[in-house]
Design a protein around this nucleic acid. Structure first.
Length: 590
RNA sequence: GGCCUCGUAGUUCAAUGGAUAGAACGGCCCUCUCCUAAAGGGCAAAUACAGGUUCGAUUCCUGUCGGGGCUACCA
């Protein structure tokens, strides 16, 4: 199935080829975009103005010629405007056809990708014994949405939670476990005790440098295989995983694998040896490093930095002078494993923007090793505090993710109590959870992925305006209409009588919005930008609410009633599917 | 110092080089005998500064000012 703008683009491409002949590149494909201002049309193309330069022709004259070549289109009325815009106003019957197609299609018109890939998505990745805080929201929620989108588009997706289960924090935890922890309390509240222990040792280390040494030696003992320390370490991971899974279940986020850093432990020494043997890595100042191989121009080289007008090496260190391995070493082993064992075509790392250089180096080392694949660092901006400075993570003042979730559900519960006091308690709880968690996810996904944003309780947990509950409410409104319509099964009812008629402005607006779903979903995944989908769904819900106020459904008759019921049902389906791609639940009542 | 990134209504955010820069919150007006008012309909309000590229710049380039990040043994 081809989207509406896709059909137009195809014909436009042909018209341009007829007009320009060989001046057009062989693989040229015209783009048709949604008009910003609906007075000009529904879709527009700027190709004439862009290509006029290449063809050395007057843009308006070229556009004129292309419009003539297009002739009468079955899809749209074509017009020419300004310096060479080609505008398309979709014919009403074409919208009707599109809506009818959607009614019969489970995918609601969204095409599958032409070349399905196997994609490993690496996201969330919290550290053991340190609970998730607001800083983990972005990776966790964006990563989950990308996984859902990619699967829906037809890719094979493997989600992998690369937890930090082998870091230097274990020195402190081990020392604390042996010297501070009350074993009885640990049995009762393992996660809380683990956290307070870590915080306490961290605090003491800052005051007593000699304690830090004790912690380091605990770490060395762990890494050299001391059975006591290994047992404690394993117990920490178990406890942490149990706690994490509770949050993930609540968020409805699940992983295919939990291959943490420790999983790659045995692969590190051979990897470094291999890199040295192949001349990719060498010793420098006692450490083993990968330096630039001169493949890139200096300004694009992730292993060089300009200092006082000269290019200085910034190697990736893969083994410390003391023999220890680092983040980069583990990531190289991880990439290796994913390509070899998972047969991945592509790996997406949903990790903050500050690590851009790290990933450039990792991907470049993969190139040096002749490992090929589509490696992407899906970066995102930082979460800032009110003072516009990065949210601090080590001052103990960070808000935990669980607190954010609890607060969101609590706020939602108050609204449910206020709006629907007669609802059964069980349902109230379910609504509060879906609304609260939906609000968090939607707020996160509405942001431009790459911009920093300021964390604000009221904004993150807002329940009115451009938020998840606004969309959930439009779905609830449809469901209320459908319940009262007395029609038992909508899929049967709608397939029996194929007729939609659009006359009111608000019906046409709604129809337009519904048909756009098919083009928005692929675009969202192409750029890894969930905010395209949230913005679209909000637009759709707005069109629906507006339609709902002006166009009575159940009180209208015959074909109008049928037509409006069909619009309602399609709105519900698009909203439900769209929100499910964002990992947000819809409700029958609220 | 060098490199990267960001500066948009009072506030928080949008806008593949496109036409009159969109929303939300907050502010000010309206709308519940009517399918859930968690809603709808209005009003006021913004591209840091200075140049350049072109039919056209919030977007690309240069410079200035300001925030953040990175810049060899943390992850």
């Amino acid at each position: 199935m081809i989207t509406l703008p896709g059909q137009i683009a195809k014909k436009l491409t042909k018209a341009l080829r007829d007009e320009l002949g060989d001046a057009l590149p062989r693989d040229f494909c015209a783009t048709v975009t949604v008009s910003q201002d609906l007075r000009y049309g529904d879709y527009q193309s700027n190709e004439a103005m862009v290509l006029a330069k290449v063809a050395r022709r007057n843009p308006r004259e070229l556009a004129q010629a292309v419009v003539a070549k297009l002739g009468d289109m079955t899809e749209a009325e074509v017009s020419l405007a300004g310096p060479g815009f080609i505008n398309f106003r979709i014919k009403s019957e074409k919208y009707v056809e599109c809506l009818m197609d959607m009614l019969r299609d489970e995918r609601l018109g969204v095409p599958l990708v032409e070349c399905p890939q196997k994609i490993v998505i690496d996201f969330s990745a919290p550290n053991v014994a340190k609970p998730m805080h607001v800083g983990h929201i972005r990776s966790t929620i964006i990563g989950d949405t990308l996984a859902r989108l990619a699967r829906f588009m037809g890719h094979t997706v493997i989600t992998d939670n690369h937890i930090g289960d082998w870091g230097t924090q274990f020195g402190m935890i081990l020392w604390g476990w042996k010297n501070l922890v009350d074993q009885a309390a640990l049995e009762q509240h393992p996660i809380e005790v683990l956290l307070t222990t870590y915080k306490e040792v961290n605090k003491r280390c800052k005051e007593q440098p000699e304690l830090l040494e004790a912690c380091k030696s605990e770490l060395v003992r762990l890494q050299s295989g001391d059975p006591d320390n290994l047992a404690i370490w394993k117990r920490c991971i178990e406890v942490t995983k149990t706690g994490l899974k509770k949050i993930y279940d609540q968020l409805d986020i699940h992983f295919d694998y939990w291959l943490g850093e420790s999983f790659y432990n045995d692969a590190l020494a051979p990897l470094v040896k291999d890199l040295m043997a192949r001349g990719i890595a060498r010793e420098s100042e006692g450490a083993v490093c990968v330096f630039s191989d001169g493949f890139h121009a200096p300004q694009d080289d992730p292993f060089l930095v300009n200092k006082d007008g000269e290019w200085q090496p910034v190697p990736a260190i893969i083994r410390k002078a003391d023999g220890g391995f680092l983040y980069a070493t583990t990531d190289l082993a991880t990439l290796d494993y994913r390509i070899r064992e998972f047969q991945a075509d592509s790996i997406w790392y949903v990790v903050g923007a500050p690590q851009e250089k790290h990933f450039k180096q990792i991907f470049d080392i993969a190139r040096m090793r002749d490992i090929t694949g589509d490696f992407r660092h899906v970066a995102f901006g930082s979460i800032l505090g009110k003072d516009r400075r990065p949210f601090k993570t080590r001052d103990g003042e960070t808000v935990s993710l669980q607190d954010v979730i609890d607060e969101a559900i609590e706020r939602a519960a108050r609204v449910v109590q206020e709006k629907s006091p007669d609802m059964p308690t069980d349902e109230k709880d379910a609504v509060a959870e879906a609304v609260g968690i939906g609000a968090i996810k939607f707020a996160e996904l509405s942001q431009n992925r790459l911009s920093d944003y300021i964390f604000d309780w009221d904004k993150m947990l807002s329940l009115s305006g451009d938020t998840a509950p606004y969309l959930q409410n439009s779905y609830v409104r449809v469901r209320a209409i459908e319940r009262k319509s007395g029609i038992p099964d909508f899929s049967v009812f709608l397939s029996d009588r194929a007729c939609i008629r659009l006359s009111e402005d608000r019906e046409i607006n709604l129809a337009h919005a519904l048909c756009r779903f098919a083009e928005v979903v692929p675009a969202t995944l192409d750029d890894c930008r969930p905010n395209l989908l949230t913005a679209y769904l909000y637009d759709l819900a707005r069109a629906f609410h507006s339609f709902y106020e002006a166009c009575p459904v159940l009180r209208s008759e015959d074909s109008v009633r049928f037509s409006r019921l069909a619009l309602c049902e399609l709105t519900a389906r698009v909203l439900k599917l769209g929100m499910s791609l964002l990992g947000i639940r819809m409700l029958e009542r609220m």
